[in-house]
Amino acid sequence: MKRADFEAHNEANWRELEATVAELDRKRPLLDAERLPRLFRKVCGDLALAQHRMYGRKLCERLNGNVIAAWGHLHSGLNRGSSGLALFFGHTFPAAVRAESRVVWLCLAMFWLPFFAFIAAAYFEPKWIYALLSPEHQAMMDMQYGTDNVDEFIREKFGSNFGMLGFYIINNVSIAFQSFACGVLFGVGAVYALGQQGIILGAMFGYVHANGNLHRLYTFCASHSSFEILGIILCGAAGTVTGLGLIKPGRLSRKDALTAAGRRALPILIGGSMMVALAAPIEAFWSPSSIPAAMKHTVGILGWLGFAAYFTFVGRRQDAA
């Protein structure tokens, strides 16, 4: 069969397929569900024939484009809806964190060691803290958590809890995202971001330990601390996982190792950033509210215990299966 005959014979089919794909591109529902698969199978055969018979670049490219477009529509992702979410938090997320437990422990250490070192510095060598916090920063800490002043400095600056929600989300989730993204650079970014967060936060807490109102600080931070800090650490851990793919590719090429690491890091990253995002409304609405301190402390402790239990126990059954 010559090319012209082949084209004449099949043109109607291709036109129909192109029209169907154009309709799907415009998100119009297809009335007869079997039309796309039928046309797709046909054009697959046509493309293979055209390639084999060397009908030329132009025809092959047209059919090639048609196959890709139709295939994309046939294989576009399934929307699993709420059951997908339940599967993610009931199994995928905690299992992925456990699978990378060594990296997660490392990242926990990278955050908590400088944090506690600076709190210890408050009692032994406070000059470490003063070296880190600028005088303006110290003044701000005094206003928020000083022994005499009872104003909510940040809240006054932004005026309302809703303003704070925007600030917390843009600040905290961006930090989490950035610590993941920079982890791709051989893990350097994640180590830097986590260490830096640990040092800064440790210095701020240490400063209040040395000369501030500890009760106010811990009452404010208790409730959202577990979500926020664990979330950022998990995002950093996801970044470290991808970075380790480059450092230690094993038997893969570095390029393939990066892709494989990305696949392992994705659930940790999604879960971690969701935790940070959840922390923001708690920090904006619950933590500064006038709920009794004992209640806030209880919620905070329960949060930490809850996450420990969650990552230890949840989603074990499908591991074995």
């Binding site: 591109d25 309302s160 809703f162 303003g163 704070m164 929600l165 925007g166 989300i169 843009i170 995202f177």
Partner: peptide, 27 residues
């Protein structure tokens, strides 16, 4: 105050969401 919060949220959404939303929803 409300609108400052919303502006901050929309900055966050535009920056991190623009490419992601278009790439998923616009194939």
């Amino acid at each position: 105050e409300m609108s400052v919060g919303l502006i901050l949220l929309s900055a966050f959404g535009t920056y991190w969401g623009y490419f992601m939303l278009y790439e998923v929803l616009r194939r």
